[in-house]
Design a protein around this nucleic acid. Structure first.
Lengths: 142, 142
DNA sequence: TCCTACAATAGACATTGTCTAAGTCAAGAA
DNA sequence: TTCTTGACTTAGACAATGTCTATTGTAGGA
């Protein structure tokens, strides 16, 4: 199965049916493309394991985020979305109309764009870049 | 008073006590620096106009966003924050510990970083850049 | 001053996320 | 294999944020 499960097992993660299902949902089903919300992860997980609770999904997603296996994305102030593609630095292209997210991989380090004089004493460790616009479908519809 | 109120009046915005107070809260009190949440705007507005309702604050903020006078910022998936500095392009420096936001103004157009081959047919109109790290206070505390 | 359409209000409702107490189970020990 | 224990899961209450509706109020023009 997935590298993800192997890595987690190797880190002493206690393997339960619930955690396995959540990890599998994030790992498969094209989840890497759509960046599911917690609720969507729960719905898909419940398809395989009907008695799984919302709290467990939230807990597990939170752990995956702490472990650095998944990135939390807040693109719209509504539900957070979970991006399993955490090991490859990338940015997001978001459609302002339908909300679809597409990963992009521009060259260069975006952190370099912020000179020290503009950091005001902050220890900057991460940059999040989100491009907003219309996806091809929404652009033709409009 | 503010340019903001003048612009709104000029656009046919019906001027009520509630709208005036919300606009003034966003315009003063150092609100431009802290980027208030809707709830904080309501609290400050209620300081001047105790009977103002939450719904009115939400409505007014929503209108200001539609009018392009205020930008909605979703930095953490919790409450949205409202940035009145909409007419000057800028980016945000966010402390991952205490949540404080600081505006920064790097040179250059961040949109230029995304080549056409990485746009996948999207009509990109806007870029949001958020630098995350620790503010000086939180860095020394940690 | 009076009208009317737009705005504000209270409060119910919806969505997303967190917490708690109690029961369950994975995985190492014997 | 069976036992033990602490980590994991569960249901459901709770919290935070945001939206909607029906009713009442009022800005601004006639």
């Amino acid at each position: 199965m997935s590298d993800l499960l192997e890595r987690l097992r190797g880190r002493g993660w206690r393997m339960t049916a619930q955690r396995r299902v959540v990890a599998e949902v994030l790992d498969g089903d094209g989840a890497a493309h759509v960046h599911l919300t917690a609720d969507e992860v729960h719905a898909r997980a419940a398809g395989r394991l009907p008695e799984i609770s919302r709290a467990t999904v939230y807990n597990t997603l939170g752990e995956l985020v702490s472990l650095g296996e998944v990135i939390e994305v807040a693109t719209d102030g509504r539900a957070k979305r979970y991006d399993p593609n955490a090991h490859q630095p990338h940015q997001h292209l978001v459609c302002s109309r339908c909300g679809v997210i597409r990963d992009v991989h521009p060259a260069g380090d975006p952190l370099a764009a912020l000179p020290a004089t503009e950091r005001f004493g902050f220890t900057v460790s991460d940059v999040e870049v989100t491009y907003r616009g219309l996806c091809p479908d929404c652009a033709t519809a409009a």
